[in-house]
Nucleic acid binder design. Structure first.
Length: 508
RNA sequence: GCCGCGUUCGUCUAAGGGUUAGGACACCACCCUUUCACGGUGGUGAUACGGGUUCGAAUCCCGUACGCGGUACCA
């Protein structure tokens, strides 16, 4: 076995991927690339009752959009498959039985009712959540409390059962987390977790250990909600494959919403996306909005997630994926949970819209224009416009309101900003200007502006006083890029037509 | 309840015994610009609390508070 870095992201296909999930993918990916290692995607679909159709496809689409393609997965292939735990079902039982044979685990025949009964019986104010552990295991129906004969006969008659790990009591288990350092637990408060379920599927606890071993995972990153169950996993490693073979672990801090743990409800409540892409629940039809559809660039989304809980030690904040891969180290991951800030997320997107040439996102924007009824847009013309207005756009969806006027002549113009100062002289100026424009031979922003200023001086009107009216004529509102640039792009004919139209309107 | 993890401006964070506690987002002011932005300059604003250790603590130790997570045949 070589010592090449191998990491995995192991989602459970139960719905859309939210911020925290994508960040976990990202950190896995960055760590792998940083070390020239491999990034594996493993689907943890061991709970058939929670399976949601479409969720797996969604995960792959998200990775594609983000540019975080796995080296190995159910769709990318690889030598350590299958990469779906449901397809590995047969593998797990033998490890469970190996543990039972070694006396480190046991068969348990308790029904759901019996478990309820035990918990109700033991529940008190100081122990609201009784566990199935060393203190009660001998009172339950399992291969420890039952005789060998009873157990065998139950097994032979196919009595539904699970395999539980037999957690030793009074032992301290510790490990070194790459982010948190030394962490330890007392096993007497750990319960005898189910390893193999009644339906023959493994639980997460068994599956993650077996698969991380079989897939030769060297470093494992997961959310900090897993920290409390780490002693179970360590014991499993010790019992099955040896602790030396165990991957190094890093428990990532959680991403929080405005009120604690970030949930998709927060998105609806506070008006920001929490999923990477739109997710429609196949059962309820409910749609949860995604960053993609909100108008985020994948580069910005990734960048924002990367620095939510990580920094490279300098003051740099804008990073490309390649830069991140080059600079990412797990030691620089912050220990505390991070509250997601939508305002800052938007800032990242704005920065990326400005940084990238419009050609990188022109197709997405064009799609939106088409949806709004503007089709047959000339590609080069459109690209020029996007580059001109991009610094005013925070989201991709801002491009339409910032530039639709290039494609639609203003019809109703609100002239209140200039109404008080509009007079005969100005009206005359614009008529002269329009006429003069017709004969410009070299049509560009500078020549238009020069002409405009010359004529203004001849008419003894301050050029500044004429700029806002001109803007209103060409744009229809008090916004947009520099007026002469607009005239330049609009072209001679259209510019002149808009001026004539508006002069008539303002004169009324 | 018990166990674990965490805690620096409103938010994301830097500073791993000696700094006027730095940067970014947001906010405010001014400049640039006779649109809206971009940009520039400046400003408001933080080491949760209490004890130690030390010449010296945001930094190390202990306690408290608060937050989050876990306590399923879910992951």
């Amino acid at each position: 076995m070589n010592n090449k870095v191998r990491v995995r992201f192991a989602p459970s296909p139960t719905g859309g991927l939210h911020l925290g999930g994508v960040r976990t993918v990202l950190y896995n990916y960055l760590f792998a690339k940083h070390h020239g290692g491999e990034f594996i995607l493993r689907i943890e679909d061991t709970d058939q009752s929670r399976y949601v159709s479409g969720a797996e496809e969604y995960i792959f689409e998200t990775l594609k959009w983000c540019g975080l393609e796995p080296d190995e997965s159910a769709v990318h292939g690889g030598n350590f498959g299958p990469y779906r735990q449901s397809e590995r079902k047969e593998l797990y039982r033998k490890y469970g039985e190996e543990l039972v044979n070694k006396g480190l685990a046991y068969y348990a025949f308790d029904t759901a009712q019996e478990l309820d009964e035990m918990r109700n019986r033991l529940r008190t104010d100081t122990n609201p959540n009784p566990q199935y552990d060393h203190s009660v295991r001998m009172q339950m129906r399992n291969s420890l409390s039952l005789s060998k004969e009873e157990t065998d006969s139950l097994l032979q008659s196919n009595t539904p059962h699970v395999i539980r790990i037999k957690i030793p009591d009074n032992e301290t288990i510790s490990f070194t987390d790459m982010i948190r350092g030394e962490v330890s637990f007392d096993t007497s408060i750990v319960d005898d977790k189910v390893l193999l379920k009644g339906d023959g599927m493994p639980t997460y606890h068994l599956a993650v250990v077996v698969d991380d071993y079989l897939m030769q995972i060297t470093h494992a990153f997961r959310g900090e909600e897993w920290l409390p169950s780490s002693p179970v996993h360590i014991l499993l490693w010790r019992y099955l494959f040896g602790e030396e073979a165990m991957p190094q672990w890093a428990h990532l801090p959680l991403i929080l919403g405005p009120n604690g743990k970030l949930s998709k409800r927060d998105g609806a409540k506070y008006g920001f996306p929490v999923f990477s892409m739109n997710w429609q629940d196949p059962k309820t039809g409910e749609v949860t909005e995604g960053f993609k559809e909100r108008g985020f660039l994948p580069q910005a989304f990734i960048n924002m997630l990367a620095v939510l809980g990580w920094n490279d030690g300098t003051e740099q904040e804008i990073f490309t994926l390649d830069e991140l891969a080059a600079k990412f180290t797990i030691e620089k991951v912050h220990k505390g949970g991070a509250k997601f800030d939508y305002e800052k997320a938007k800032w990242f997107n704005h920065e990326w819209i400005k940084k990238l040439p419009a050609s990188q996102y022109i197709n997405e924007v064009k799609k939106e224009f088409e949806n709004k009824g503007l089709s047959n847009i000339n590609h080069d013309y459109f690209e020029r416009i996007l580059n001109l207005v991009k610094e005013r756009c925070t989201l991709l969806s801002d491009f339409y309101p910032q530039s639709y006027f290039f494609f639609k002549s203003p019809v109703e113009i609100d002239n209140t900003p200039i109404k008080a100062k509009w007079n005969q002289d100005k009206s005359a100026f614009f008529s002269t200007f329009a006429k003069a424009l017709t004969s410009i031979s070299d049509w560009n922003a500078t020549s238009i502006e020069t002409l405009f200023k010359q004529l203004a001086e001849q008419a003894s009107i301050k050029a500044g006083e004429l700029q806002l009216p001109l803007r209103l004529m060409l744009v229809g509102g008090k916004f947009g890029p520099p007026v002469f640039e607009i005239a330049d792009i609009l072209g001679k004919e259209e510019t002149v037509a808009r001026i004539h139209y508006a002069v008539d309107l303002f004169d009324k």
